[in-house]
Design a protein around this nucleic acid. Structure first.
Lengths: 108, 108
DNA sequence: TTCTTACGTAAGCAATCACTTACATTTGTG
DNA sequence: CACAAATGTAAGTGATTGCTTACGTAAGAA
């Protein structure tokens, strides 16, 4: 889990994900979009691979990378955990109000 | 955006978020759940505050922290972006199949 | 086999990170 | 005011990170 988040928490890696999100691209072409050197991008690709956020496919001498959407599921569900807390809190507040309301009506 | 992701990409900070996700807690009580020293946790709280993932409320000499669900929205939508790509790809595949199907039927 | 293309890997380095100990600050209490 | 409680801030340190240059490797072309 933390691996995925660490992989996401870097601007160049985020940009790589955006680049390959719509089309599979070879390492060289990905690197061409950055000011950094090719090895730097290669290392970023490795981090993303290890995190399970992208997939690699070899074709001759080239290596093609594409997004691996399943890899995002774990992060999404973790985030939903935190997000849902707000909904739960809201729900409890509403129920609390309803109880208060009922008590008031009962006293009438 | 990257600030939020970096804030999330640390085990102790994730645990802090889980701790205060259901109840507002004072810094000291949060720190008590960890092996690390109190200042270490204080610094983590600062990172989470800067990232907008938690909120602080002062009560006398204590500082109470609680989750700030709105802060997760940006991360959620970014993640959805990547996730949706898969849906788009699927959609395109289906449409492609439908076109092929129509052509086949036309030839019959 | 030799050369070229498209890559990854290794080593080294400056910046950043997470942590610790020591000290400062703020609020309530006798 | 003096003191205690709850917490933040500063400074220093070892580990990790992202980058670069130099080198290694695997697949196709001559």
């Amino acid at each position: 889990m933390v691996d995925k988040l660490k992989a996401l928490a870097e601007p160049n890696r985020l940009e790589i994900l955006r680049l390959i999100s719509h089309e599979e691209l070879p390492a060289g072409e990905i690197a061409r979009h950055f000011n950094a050197t090719r090895p730097a991008i290669s290392q970023h690709l490795h981090v993303l691979l290890d995190a399970g956020l992208i997939e690699e496919r070899r074709e001759g001498t080239r290596r093609l990378y594409r997004l691996r959407a399943e890899g995002f599921e774990e992060v999404r569900s973790m985030l939903r955990e935190f997000w849902d807390v707000r909904l739960q809190a809201l729900k409890q507040k509403v129920e609390q109000k309803q109880r208060t309301q009922r008590r008031r009506n009962g006293r009438k």
